[in-house]
């Protein structure tokens, strides 16, 4: 997994609430057996017509936002299915950070496994970041994970919450499985105890 430390990039405004995982990556693209290559189909049905032509109004098709690395989104981003294809598609497009008032739990969790930082901020701050993102390509926002701050293009800075384990993994690009396997002895002893207490499980 790629590390996430500090990012300065273009932020695309997507104020729509309840952007679901079917919007982020429609089901016809879930038939892949790989993780890569989904970026061209990110937001497919919002981004292209049925014949595959770009819909010019869609934010990521606008010249200012074609190289966006941050999305500032409406409430409850990533609701719906557990498909990790959603963060895979975002990452493959180049998005490394999504900022919203709230995220669906499974999507939120999936982001961290892929080097994407989801940030939760209160509505007033989202409103300021959204307005800043609307200024276009020259309005670059900065996300600093070490300091846990987001800074607008004109220097307004907001602290964001986060938990220590996820931050550590993201800063260092660590593989969860490797870390868990270091606790193999604890898993062994849990299984031994469980076999006595709940043999049917």
């Amino acid at each position: 997994m790629e590390k996430f430390t500090k990012l300065t990039g273009i932020a695309a405004p997507m104020p729509l609430v309840n952007i679901d995982t079917d919007m982020i990556i429609p089901k016809q693209f879930l038939k892949t057996i790989q993780r890569s290559g989904l970026g061209k189909n990110l937001f497919d049905e919002m981004r292209y017509t049925q014949d595959g032509a770009e819909i010019p109004d869609f934010v990521l098709n606008q010249p200012a936002y074609r190289k966006a690395e941050i999305i500032v989104a409406g409430d409850n981003f990533g609701c719906g299915s557990s498909r990790e294809h959603a963060p895979w598609a975002l990452l493959d497009f180049g998005i490394r950070c999504v900022i919203s008032t709230s995220f669906a739990d499974i999507f939120f969790n999936n982001c961290f496994k892929n080097g994407i930082l989801p940030i939760v901020l209160p509505q007033e701050q989202i409103d300021i970041l959204m307005a800043d993102a609307r200024k276009g390509a020259n309005a670059r926002q900065t996300v600093d994970l070490e300091a846990q701050t987001v800074t607008t293009s004109d220097g307004q800075s907001f602290p964001f919450p986060g938990d220590a384990h996820r931050k550590h993994c993201l800063l260092n690009g660590l593989d969860d499985i490797g870390l868990t396997l270091e606790k193999a002895a604890a898993i062994d002893s849990f299984e031994a105890k469980n076999a006595a207490l709940r043999p049917w499980a």
Partner: peptide, 10 residues
């Protein structure tokens, strides 16, 4: 509950 593919591997 549901989990993502990285968690499936985990």
């Amino acid at each position: 509950h549901g989990i993502g593919t990285s968690e499936v591997e985990h």
